[in-house]
Design a protein around this nucleic acid. Structure first.
Lengths: 154, 154
DNA sequence: TTTGTTGCAAAACGTTTGCAGCCTC
DNA sequence: GAGGCTGCAAACGTTTTGCAACAAA
């Protein structure tokens, strides 16, 4: 029931945002929001588009448009990992985390570190208002490291 | 003379890398390296391409190819700030820093924080070898904040 | 001589845009 | 009824690729 609840509250937040900003409450927007919130982990605009085709037909343009709105009201975050295409992720019900990006296979792992988080979140600037941050650690995952060591010995 | 010196050592590092990897030492590659290292701050592939046209004709493809090599041997770093196009930056002679990205005007400011840097650099993972990291703080710069407050009062 | 590298142009890719018709408000 | 939103397709800008000519090893 917990998921049910959070989906409802997320819809409420979105509705409030749409009303505040005088945007229209279209069925497409709610369908996209629902899909985003029933998906765990990262997704691209393309993936979301394909995933939706089966039960609700929306254009890719609308996906992009709606993701933009969801970013604005902070119901999703957007990641740009190195060369990769933009990845999105729901925020509500997701613990704030950082990312390990393998530069060899592109795989992403998440990690949390309270000390780092606290330190960054408490940082203040005279000339700049921080609204969010992203910390990406790039490197090589275990699997790729083993792979590359194998190749060395050839 | 200090710059002179570092340019020479950077060339040596690049040469060593090229030889190790059995890549060819082409004049284009050195011309690009030199240009990169006489430029302060961020630059895009396009900018580098245009900047070089006046004194050394290289194709954009070669620029991309060479930047890839320079990334591999860590003589440059690549940034992907939010929606913006890829930005590059020399590493040698540049103090490690983090970035403030204004989501309104896109301007980038740099900042250093020893505590944050130390904390992140000392982080170790069992299944992952970190080779570098990027920390971007997104928000609104003073100028854009004043601008948006003006618009509110209309 | 071999083959990695180049320049060029075309292609690819994710994303944005223009527009006619639709549907919130 | 007005005009914001939609789907569609075409356009966009950055990056990659295919290929013939070139030049480093």
């Amino acid at each position: 029931m917990r998921d049910e609840y959070s989906l409802e509250s997320v819809k409420e937040i979105f509705t409030k945002f749409l009303v505040d900003k005088k945007h229209r409450k279209t069925p497409e927007r709610y369908a996209i929001l629902e899909r985003v919130y029933t998906h765990d982990g990262h997704f691209s605009a393309e993936l979301l588009y394909k995933a939706m085709q089966s039960d609700y037909r929306v254009s890719l343009a609308t996906i992009y448009n709606t993701l933009e709105l969801l970013l604005e009201c902070k119901l999703v975050v957007k990641h740009q990992f190195g060369d990769q295409i933009a990845q999105y992720e729901k925020t509500f019900g997701t613990v704030k985390h950082n990312h390990l990006v393998c530069t060899s296979c592109g795989k992403i792992k998440e990690f949390s570190d309270k000390k780092i988080r606290t330190l960054i979140q408490n940082k203040r600037f005279a000339q700049f208002d921080v609204s969010y941050y992203s910390l990406y650690l790039y490197g090589t995952c275990k699997k790729c490291k083993i792979e590359s060591e194998k190749n060395k010995n050839k």
